[in-house]
């Protein structure tokens, strides 16, 4: 959440969207594709935090784990079990990719809740890349593993024959809508929560309602902590579900 750098000279200043602005880190106005920006900074911090949890935390390799090692093992076990339960044993080949996605999203979500922080996952550009990567790789895996049999995913044998073409059209549409819903769900949730907190923060400038505003910010923050985890979980489990469809296309 970016600071309110510019006042409007009295009155209430609502800039709930300013926290999502991309700024070059080292001055300058232009943002080209290679410019180090606040997005770069917070993605780098995300990588460092992931490395801290998963590498530094487990560096002692203790049989009886310390607290930090327990966190790393819990994250590992959580995603490993999810992949195995949802996508099946043969889905475990893709476990490192899914773990990468989960760790990036969950860490970025939580880092975004630090005051003044920038939330990488609140940008549709970021979540769209993640979702399209999942969509493309799942589709490729589906065709490589099953060949044309992958198309059985759209031809529902359980349905009566006259209904099948209609269902096939619906299935195809829903298949191509997947990356859209997949990405907008995450970015939208992140953006909405942060913007609402920002609006309440602006209300806190009014003396009469500032206790309510502070209370509301606290409540929203608690909710956002929940949302930060749940959205990462949802994104990951949907990835597993799509992977399951690719590996076992017959329903």
């Amino acid at each position: 959440m970016a600071t309110e750098a510019h006042g409007e000279g009295g009155g209430l200043a609502f800039h709930p969207m300013d926290q999502f602005i991309i700024k070059p880190l080292f001055g300058g106005d232009t943002v080209s594709w290679y410019t180090p920006t606040n997005a770069t900074l917070w993605m780098a911090i995300t990588v460092l935090v992931i490395a801290g949890i998963l590498i530094v935390g487990t560096s002692r390799r203790a049989v009886v784990p310390s607290r930090s090692q327990s966190v790393a093992e819990m994250a590992y076990g959580f995603i490993h079990k999810m992949v195995e339960d949802v996508a099946g044993k043969d889905g475990l080949r893709y476990f490192p990719y899914i773990m990468t996605i989960f760790m990036f999203i969950v860490t970025a979500n939580f880092l975004g809740l630090i005051p003044m922080a920038f939330t990488s996952t609140s940008h549709i550009g970021v979540t769209a890349v993640l979702a399209i990567a999942v969509f493309v790789s799942v589709t490729v895996i589906g065709f490589v593993k099953n060949g044309a049999g992958f198309l059985n995913l759209f031809w529902i044998k359980a349905a009566p024959l006259p209904l099948r073409p209609i269902l096939a059209i619906i299935e195809v549409i829903s298949y191509f809508v997947r990356p859209v819903s997949h990405s907008i769900r995450l970015a939208g949730n992140m953006m909405a929560g942060h913007a609402v907190i920002k609006v309440f923060a602006a209300f806190a400038a009014l003396l009469a309602i500032s206790p309510f505003a502070v209370l509301a910010i606290t409540a929203m923050y608690a909710l956002e902590l929940l949302v930060a985890f749940i959205q990462a979980y949802v994104f990951t489990i949907l990835t597993c579900v799509y992977l399951k469809d690719a590996l076992h296309p017959s329903h």
Partner: peptide, 14 residues
Amino acid sequence: DWMGNQIFWLIVTL
């Protein structure tokens, strides 16, 4: 204007 920048750094990060 900001998409390319984010996509590039996201790919690096991932």
